[in-house]
Design a binder for these strands. Sequence first.
DNA 1: TAGATTGTTAATCGATTAACAATC
DNA 2: TAGATTGTTAATCGATTAACAATC
Lengths: 212, 212
Amino acid sequence: MSQKSYISNSVIRRLPRYYRFMGELQKEGTAKISSAELSVRMKLTASQIRQDLNCFGGFGQQGYGYNVAELRREIGDIIGVERRVGTILLGAGNLGRAITTYFDFPKYGCELIGIFDADPKLENTEIAGVSVSSMLKLRTFCEQKSPEIAVLCIPKESAGVVSKVLVGCGVKAFWNFTHYDINLHFDDIIVENVHLGDSLLTLAYNVNNTNK
Amino acid sequence: MSQKSYISNSVIRRLPRYYRFMGELQKEGTAKISSAELSVRMKLTASQIRQDLNCFGGFGQQGYGYNVAELRREIGDIIGVERRVGTILLGAGNLGRAITTYFDFPKYGCELIGIFDADPKLENTEIAGVSVSSMLKLRTFCEQKSPEIAVLCIPKESAGVVSKVLVGCGVKAFWNFTHYDINLHFDDIIVENVHLGDSLLTLAYNVNNTNK
DNA sequence: TAGATTGTTAATCGATTAACAATC
DNA sequence: TAGATTGTTAATCGATTAACAATC
């Protein structure tokens, strides 16, 4: 039994979490786990776990459960963590610098191969071992290294122009920290939005509207 | 027609985006918009927009549409942006510092009133005008200032202990940047997860599994 | 073999979309 | 008044949960 033809977004969004839990179980030395046990740990239904995993193939064994190490490897393969997708970061301000230094890209399937900033003063400085280049070098760089993912940490105002250039350069996907809605402007471009403002507003709503 | 008794999570998560679009329209000087026009802009169905807004009350006028300024104000009130919820940040590492400097808390309904870090060397330093305190002062601070939201930027390993202390101190909600699943351990606590790792893995999945 | 647990189909639940009567 | 567009009910679609036969 191999992969289903269509996999819903809801399932895909749960994959990283399964992957994470398998990592933890493995660290704890757990060799096997049943959907029932896992459901308690993850606060999901056992049914959902089995449905989800079965989208990608029969990883379990009836009467036994799931082999933790094997399942982790399988999910990792599905996501493609080992692929190390070429990634560039745009905007070396506070947020961009923090992500570069704080974030372990290879752990999450990516390799950070370049940083670009509009400010010429930053050119040739280094952040976490990656040197910052001028925006003018972007096109040439992309032609040579063909990055597939761009991390957008630039001001909202420049996001329209910059994303257009990047798409023109062959970038296929955006990890978008700006509040610019990239997906409204391109089809066939993969976008993962990290709208921190929206996230905090949601929290504020819940704080202000939950009856104590 | 006032607020519905139950509002689904899906609707709540769209509120900040409506709020954002109303802000933009207002800036552009648009006085009124119909659900049909807005649906084009936001890539939603007009039906969904009307359904969503009607959860909170009849903000529109038949035959006319929605008054942009009024709708923005209404949504702002619903979220509670003006309330400025007392917020503390835990962990003044790269990420914590970046969020403090980069992020405009008041714009998103919160006021950052304290930063705490386990490292005694950081005590009494300042980040973006807010001074860093020792973790030892956390309890006293909470008793005096009663912050409602805690932003967690600490290592995953300490997240269990720290969140427990915070809940004990009366903190009601977490903006959680760690990979620790707070909600698995407490009921009645509001959690907004920003699992950056999960987010990037989702992007990696899509990049690796989209047929070009 | 018997017990356990998966894979998978069927039933339920919730969210989105369509339709239209109410009304500005 | 007539046209436009909302508010709201009904229909559809998709995702979650339940049930159970297959099988290790």
